[in-house]
Write a protein that binds this DNA or RNA. Structure first.
Length: 249
DNA sequence: TACCAGGTGACTG
DNA sequence: CAGTCACATGGT
């Protein structure tokens, strides 16, 4: 379905001095190196994960997974499907109390019920109930519309743009922030856009590249670069200040 | 047991 | 702009 762009194979395989004690601004070579190292180690990740598949599930899953594990999200998606609450109209028509019971496993069930309903109303009111109409918008307009919906923040908006609409908007999450900090890469400020800008400024805006890059970061950080990092199992250890013992996590 | 897991919005200084 | 808090379930 996706074909890796040739540019991947022209990426840098080296990074700047990993023994620097103070954070340094990452170069294009650094950002290319990280992708290449993870891709060589793990191969394509083929995200977004699915239970039943389809754009509807992807978007609903992006809301339900907020600050919770995917396994919890899966339970909620299965409940919704089994209850035949599997369209924006169905979400809108289902009483709050029923929604609470169905999505309870995903946590924050009251807040997420409101989020799902606000999003369903948005799609029905502004896009004739069809996600394809949202996905057809230019990235900037799509992103602004998504951010206008209560419960859709920057990460969820970019999840939907990248993994739903298949357009290049880099996803920044807690894992992304953690690994960049551990690598000793200085970011101007702590805002979401500061992190995203790094990737947008230094990489070609390619949906496949952004898709795999974010997926590889999450795969790697969830398993290796944990709060207590497993540096003895890390393929980046020889190029990371933490892995080299230069700095502490 | 306590901590952790693919955030967001409300509120504060 | 940066920091803090509530929101809530299931796994380890």
């Amino acid at each position: 379905m996706h074909t890796p762009p040739e540019i991947i194979y022209e990426f840098s395989h080296v990074r700047s001095d990993p023994r620097a004690r103070e954070p340094v601004a990452p170069s294009r070579e650094d950002v290319e190196w990280l992708f290449t190292a993870l891709y060589d180690a793990y191969g394509p990740r083929q995200w977004w994960p699915t239970v039943h598949g389809g754009s509807f599930e992807m978007v609903i899953g992006a809301i339900l997974v907020q600050n919770i594990s995917w396994s919890n999200t899966e339970r909620a998606l299965i409940n919704l499907r089994d209850a035949d609450v599997w369209s924006f109209k169905a979400i809108s028509d289902t009483p709050d109390e029923t929604m609470h019971d169905l999505i309870r496993p995903s946590g924050y069930y009251k807040a997420k019920t409101r989020k799902l309903k606000e999003f369903a109303d948005f799609i029905m009111t502004n896009h004739h109930g069809d996600l394809a109409n949202l996905f057809a918008l230019p990235i900037g307009e799509m992103r602004n519309q998504l951010l206008s919906v209560w419960g859709i923040g920057e990460e969820t908006a970019d999840d939907i743009i990248l993994y739903g609409a298949n357009k290049p908007s880099f996803v920044v999450d807690a894992y992304t922030r953690r690994i960049l900090e551990r690598l000793g890469w200085d970011i101007q400020g702590k805002s979401y856009s500061a992190y995203q800008q790094l990737f947008h400024d230094l990489l070609p805006h390619d949906a496949y590249l952004f898709n795999e890059y974010h997926a590889l970061i999450d795969y790697h950080v969830a398993r290796i670069c944990k709060k207590k990092p497993l540096c003895n199992k890390c393929v980046l250890a020889g190029n990371c200040p933490v892995g080299l013992g230069v700095t502490q996590p």
